[in-house]
Write a protein that binds this DNA or RNA. Structure first.
Lengths: 245, 245
DNA sequence: CGCCTTATTGAACCCCATCAATATCTGTGG
DNA sequence: CCACAGATATTGATGGGGTTCAATAAGGCG
């Protein structure tokens, strides 16, 4: 603890950290007060508009970040330009690639986002001195692995309708106002992706996404509230359509 | 180091460890000699025939293991029984789920396998006292995440022919006799999965797998050597067909 | 040899992609 | 405020890649 005490003498924890989601559910949740204090010395909150490339498929990026607000899409490309979104990140997920500086996904802000950035070097220092952080990063990697595998099942084995149902469900669960999730009542969901992005996420085309959504509306499972808003009759119904546990 | 010295007094490193693949490229590669010695106190080599369920989708398993020989398939099921293989593991991959005892993939030996098992408790101890091990596990998780995402691109966006080409390529690269990989000459590849498993891996049906393989034969990209053996004209040609970097 | 599992081949169909047209949204400038 | 242009979404018509159903062939093992 010596190191952290020395480095944080006289500092105070920023207000932002106290109410920050990352402090409660994210990467910072496993840090001692003094470790967090040290980290906060190097962090900076930054806003980016939708469409900003936060990590590139081959560029070197010198910062890591916590996602505080908004949605980030992780995507990959084939040689001939077909795209697949391989993951979505919601607050308070961690953005970046520990160990390797060049990875092969690109991360783009799907909505306007706010992140809490800090330099690569800081993460390296913290990973040495604060095992709690390392463990959290490890856990997040395992969670992302689980998510990726769950989505592989969807990509490989489910129909367009099932894919859409699962996607809406996924978004609803991630953007829940942290209350207990109500599976039985109608519920308003904001869709953070364009039709093209949804298609790239589900391994479909925009046309199929559009058609499938209108069919779900016709069947009464969804109601159209706007281009990017729907009302879900009940999450349970969605689950049933998706044939998923 | 005190702990390890106390616990390993008078012990000698088993012969097996010295030539073990895991010691060189796997989880054990980042351990100090004395840490490895401690671990070896608790390990046991076990053989399982093809088809053995090593990790169940909801069962609790009390051991971790290194895969020493053979191939293990990780798979998931939808509610109504459709299956998707979400990963293949080759020696010297690590088998198990740190942090959580119940996960939602099942691991089945695709071929006869040999593993080096040790109890859950041992891993917990090691993760506390040997940071090198934790880091390796973290790295493997990130590699598996990369693999999973690469495969998502394949599942979502590539044709049956591309999928098969990539699959053969993948197998060839993982079962390489550790020499530099020759992309230009003919090369014999043993396919460790049945047609049904290949189908479940690629998100296809057995019929499509069969048809696509014979088409690749007709096109001269592959030669049939046996049900589970093919000769690949050149890995470069396969790559070209797969439209992958 | 005979039985069972696994693989290949064939024919018909269907879901989703593709191509094409129209509609709706968004923002910008007159 | 409206007009217009470009992007985004919806809807329609057609076709193809892969599934489905069905039959034959080829191993594997008693």
């Amino acid at each position: 603890m010596d190191f952290f005490e020395r480095e944080t003498r006289g500092l105070e924890l920023p207000e932002i950290c106290k109410s920050c989601e990352a402090r409660h559910k994210g990467i910072c949740s496993n840090l001692a007060d003094i470790e967090l204090l040290y980290l906060s010395k190097w962090t900076e909150q930054v806003d980016y508009p939708a469409g900003t490339e936060l990590l590139s498929q081959d560029h070197h990026v010198e910062t890591y970040a916590n996602l505080l607000k908004g949605v980030v899409k992780l995507s990959k490309l084939t040689d001939d330009g077909r795209q697949q979104i391989v993951g979505l990140q919601f607050a308070p997920d961690f953005l970046g690639r520990p160990f390797s500086d060049v990875g092969d996904v690109s991360a783009v802000a799907a909505t306007d986002v706010r992140v809490c950035e800090f330099p690569r070097e800081t993460l390296a220092t913290m990973m040495e001195k604060a095992p709690g952080l390392t463990a959290m990063l490890h856990r997040q990697a395992l969670v992302e692995l689980e998510d990726a595998r769950e989505w592989m099942l969807t990509l490989g084995r489910r129909s367009a309708t099932e894919k859409l149902a699962l996607f809406i469900l996924d978004v609803a669960l991630h953007t829940d106002p942290e209350a207990d999730i109500d599976y039985t009542h109608e519920r308003r969901v904001e869709i953070p992706l364009s039709r093209a992005d949804i298609a790239d996420f589900l391994g479909l085309t925009v046309e199929t996404v559009s058609r499938t959504l209108t069919r779900l509306m016709d069947d009464g499972v969804l109601r159209r509230l706007g281009k990017r808003h729907v009302a879900v009759k009940s999450l349970a119904a969605l689950k049933a359509i998706a044939h998923a546990g």
